[in-house]
Design a protein around this nucleic acid. Sequence first.
DNA 1: TGTACATCAGTGAACGCGCGTTCACTGATGTAC
DNA 2: TGTACATCAGTGAACGCGCGTTCACTGATGTAC
Lengths: 205, 205
Amino acid sequence: MSKRGYHHGNLRQALVDAALSLIEAKGPTGFTLSEAAKQAGVTPAAVYRHFAGREDLIAEAARQGYEIFADVMQYAYDSGQPSALAAFEATGRAYLAFARKYPGHYIAMFESGISVNHSPELAAVSRRARDVLERAATELSQHIPEEKRPPPAMFSAHIWALSHGVVELFARNSPGTQSPFPPEDLLETGIGVYLRGLGLLPKDE
Amino acid sequence: MSKRGYHHGNLRQALVDAALSLIEAKGPTGFTLSEAAKQAGVTPAAVYRHFAGREDLIAEAARQGYEIFADVMQYAYDSGQPSALAAFEATGRAYLAFARKYPGHYIAMFESGISVNHSPELAAVSRRARDVLERAATELSQHIPEEKRPPPAMFSAHIWALSHGVVELFARNSPGTQSPFPPEDLLETGIGVYLRGLGLLPKDE
DNA sequence: TGTACATCAGTGAACGCGCGTTCACTGATGTAC
DNA sequence: TGTACATCAGTGAACGCGCGTTCACTGATGTAC
């Protein structure tokens, strides 16, 4: 264990990590700049060497989350190719998997109250994540007869909303509100029924 | 304008109303006990005549929200009877209508971080609201051949999640994240596709 | 390899603030007689 | 109808706290020569 020098070396990222673990442990409200600094072994004032302030730190945590999120979605999409259906279903599963694996990031992204327009970078990377799902939806909807094809943006909005709802309502350890079913099953079956409704899955089980 | 007496007369409810308007205006974090008291024209200390503390005040706001919510859902359900399908679709629409009409209550209920088990009353009334949707789902699912019928609790969980996701992602005036479609349309079409997937709506438009 | 020096990451003390909560109190209200 | 009195809703001052942020500073690090 080498003695830490006067300079931290990687304080910026250490602060982001501290913020994430605080958010994960105590919710978006539980995070304070001072406590994050303390957890990184540093004076609160040191934070200002790396961030404009509290909100800026959260925004960076969210940005990193979107970055991971977009990668995860992209990877899932690719793994299902060349089948449009497999690619689409994989991205749906990836949404929930991300929320479970990176709860701190997820909360920073969707529940911390920071706007996706906080910075151009944040807007861009969130757009990138959305685009993956939308592309998967677009390609899948090619298999629906044109005249009864819903707009792909609506299609993907439905799945996004269902996924988000499942996460918020059933995949949180909010005390007392335990899920009647595993969230993964809920999302899987929900998407299944939905795709069947679009004629993209056979009518029978 | 009669001079206010020394006693407020209905301070308890005035505080709840103040809390709701603050929550609506500034989010669940924006609400403070002190400011709610100020808005009700009263000293912060006066709050303690009526509530155990800050959290207790939010819980009461949420409780009143669930009460209204359950009534609204029940009314919608009744209005669709005797058609199981009409009743179900009406409750779906009622969910979103409630979220739009009572944003303060909605946030207190679902985003304030208070547990539904804060008090037995709160647990009971939230149970009542859930039960309406679950009953509608149960009745509607009678029309599905028994062997391919999903558990009604799962059925209603899907709709609950979709509705909640639509509200959170597309029905909030979160700056920059405007919806590509009106939330009402999104929910309506989403539920439509879903019901078609269950064989409860004809295959063709 | 050694020295002088510029850089700049982090310190530590201080700030003003508004928070939730407590306490002894006061005075308006309602009731008993 | 009038008076005495109990109740209790709201006051106002005070508290300790942790917050985000600022500031002049210091001393470790890295570079130029």
